[in-house]
Amino acid sequence: MSLAVAQLSARRGTRQVLTGVSFTAHRGEILGVIGPNGAGKTTLFECVAGLLPFEGTVDHDLLFYVPDAIRPWPDQTVRWTLELMARMFGTRLDETLLDDLDLVALQHATVKSLSKGEAKRLDIAIGLAAPRTVLLLDEPFDGLDLRQTRQVMEVLRRDAANGRTLVLSIHQLSDAARVCDRFLLLDHGRSVAEGTLDELTSGVGGLEEVFLALT
């Protein structure tokens, strides 16, 4: 087990965003966190990463979380950013990352000059550059076209196969169904279901039907 969350509750200001969320993620699996807008997916990730105060318990191996749609150090280049990430963890940048995520041609472009999809690929590269056994990615396919989505899924699958646990927050259910091994369904800050696609959809239909039925 790489990540175990039990009875996690959190507030943003006076608003209760998460209530008693529990789930586990195992080594080498891809867990998809799905749920409607405002279900608490991002808050859950920030709590697990220690970036928001919470109640409950979180047990995990070394983990890293990449928020959605960030453009860190906008005046620096893509290569500088990735090398910084690797250096901060005491490693060297794995050049294949640039290749895998189509960033070679962009390596000397400044972060602020990237398009939405390019920035998203950088964000994923940032996560993969961190040598952590658990990686949380918030909306990793948002802003990517179909070809890029498939390419990133392939990269993530390969990474999980190498033993890293991936926890992905995904609002496109079709994407989630294609890449994730198991799912955690959140609604109004509560976990309403957890399991594999088969477990969740038995007797109901597809993931979309489950989503509509439970949220």
């Binding site: 920030e46 890293f64 960030i70 453009r71 860190p72 150090w73 963890f89």
Partner: peptide, 17 residues
Amino acid sequence: ASEKSSDALKLMLQWPA
């Protein structure tokens, strides 16, 4: 402020420093 607004701070807080 730039690191706060770009969310770089959230990455930095996870560095082993």
